[in-house]
Design a binder for these strands. Structure first.
Lengths: 156, 156
DNA sequence: CTAATATAGTACTAAAATAGTCCTATATAA
DNA sequence: TTATATAGGACTATTTTAGTACTATATTAG
């Protein structure tokens, strides 16, 4: 199954929470209470997001985290990259030379194409979209413009 | 890093190889030699692809595998699903009820949107595209039509 | 200047997913 | 009947991920 890690999932939950009050400072302990995610885990995620400049951190008493940019300026691709590293669906996409078959591999270029397509899709969704309640929302990505209906199942 | 498993990567290599001679039968042992992937692994992948009706298998002496459909009728989304199971980026997308936060989770619907966008991107690339050498190829997916240039790096 | 609070960084452990291998059964052709 | 090739399932080792803990540093308040 093609999936993001749990930490990335937490990251979106946490960011969505913060984005609801974009002008306030949020301490890790507050976020734990509001989201139900364990404190050490919240802490870890927040650090990663700060390191990637998605959040700004303030130390010390009365410290906490705030969004570095407006909700519509941070997209899902950035969040995934912050937690999991560069988005690349195969080994050869992110690190050269580690694949033995590389020299004779004829499909590397095509995987790059696929990556690009996926990345574009992820880039099109911002935090602002995540904050918004699920609505009849056109995803402006993909061949046929997809219109959201409830609980669409992506398989088959 | 958002990625497909190695087995899925092998699957695309193997399928690409088979698609070069779509009218011949390919035994697992032949494929091992031509691709450099270990026999037990090749074998495992072929079984999974056959089970998903992407390949047709013929047992016995002179047996082997062949494509069930034309190269342009099998897409990457199907291949990923065959090897890894349903494509869904978060737990709640593929299996209901296992996430404790589900009832209070406000972003589930939005993950469904993202899944849909990614799936559409993966669906747009077929085996026929993989067989073709990397060429100046427009990916008909994503907002701006992406034109392939060499070694585009998907990050930042 | 000191104490309290909150993040930064790093290292470690446990659990889960993945990869890879092997064995036995079944089907087909010569 | 024998050789060949896939089907299916079980098992092990490896790798990745998740989660935790500890120490250092920065900031505010008194």
């Amino acid at each position: 199954m093609l999936r993001v890690s749990k930490l990335t999932d937490y990251a979106t939950v946490i960011l969505t929470h913060i984005a609801h009050q974009p002008d306030e400072l949020h301490a890790a302990s507050d976020i734990t209470q509001d989201t139900g995610v364990a404190l050490p885990t919240v802490s870890k995620v927040l650090k990663l997001l700060a390191k990637a400049n998605i959040l700004i951190s303030y130390r010390g008493s009365k410290g906490g985290y705030a969004l570095a940019n407006k909700p519509n300026e941070t997209n899902v691709a950035e969040v995934i990259t912050a937690i999991e590293g560069p988005i690349g669906m195969t080994e050869c996409t992110t690190s050269d030379g580690t694949c033995e078959q590389e020299s004779s591999c004829e499909i590397k270029g095509n995987w790059n194409l696929i990556n690009r397509a996926v990345y574009t899709a992820l880039e099109a969704v911002t935090l602002a979209d995540m904050v918004a309640p699920v609505r009849q929302q056109a995803v402006t990505v993909g061949l046929p413009t997809v219109t959201k209906s409830n609980d669409l199942n992506v398989e088959n």
